[in-house]
């Protein structure tokens, strides 16, 4: 079991907190001129997503979390698991619904995703920042309308619903920012 001391704390360090792998978002040392130093750390728990502040006595050690990230291509879902493949080694890995979270609507077959593994098992699936998806349902646009007049909801092939400009029609492909869930542009076929 590898450990690190508070002296090695830095943003992005992954360690075990309350039995859950967590990542450091911010680390500040508080050191009185005379007396004990402390580390005030802002952490995000990787599974629950909870962000919290923790105080450590400087010199304390914590257990390093065996967390790594890899780029894998999304293959398909069998309803229970979502299957991904390493394009170089062809090794396949299956993520469960918990790891997928709300991101199923952004998974596009053959697109590369970032999979976060803890002890070799997927815990987070992060889709590409931008995906291109077909519009399957939306109200017909009104004549003469241009972008930026409020827009309308559109359902995409994966089930995601995003606000699009009025000129977008069923069957068109649009580019969406998966981080904000916002429409970016129309993709010409």
């Amino acid at each position: 079991m590898a450990t690190v001391s508070t002296n090695e704390f830095k943003n992005g360090l992954k360690f075990m907190l309350d039995g859950e792998p967590s990542t450091i978002l911010d680390n500040e040392t508080v050191k009185p001129g005379k007396g004990q130093a402390f580390n005030r750390v802002k952490v995000r728990k990787l599974i629950s997503g909870k962000v919290l502040e923790k105080t450590f006595k400087s010199g304390e050690t914590v257990e390093v979390a065996d967390v790594m990230e890899c780029d894998l291509d999304y293959l398909y879902s069998d309803g229970e698991f979502w299957h991904f493949m390493n394009a170089e080694t062809f090794e396949q890995i299956a993520a469960d619904a918990k790891a997928i979270g709300d991101n199923e609507k952004w998974l596009v077959e053959q697109d590369s995703c970032v999979i976060t593994l803890w002890n070799g098992s997927p815990i987070i699936v992060t889709p590409a920042n931008f995906v291109e998806l077909e519009v399957t349902e939306t109200d017909p646009g009104l004549k003469g309308d241009t972008a930026g007049t409020g827009g309308k909801p559109a359902t995409l092939i994966t089930g995601a619903v995003v606000r699009v400009p009025l000129f977008i029609q069923i069957g068109e492909i649009i580019k969406v920012d998966t981080r904000s869930g916002e429409y970016v542009s129309r993709v010409s076929k």
Binding site: P32, G35, Q36, F38, K54, T55
Partner: peptide, 23 residues
């Protein structure tokens, strides 16, 4: 005040005082 897990077993009086004072 949720000032760290080490607090539960901290044996040093001054460390606790300094912790409370600092934060």
């Amino acid at each position: 005040h949720d000032l760290g897990d080490f607090v539960a077993t901290e044996q040093d009086h001054d460390t606790l005082l300094q912790l409370l004072f600092c934060f």
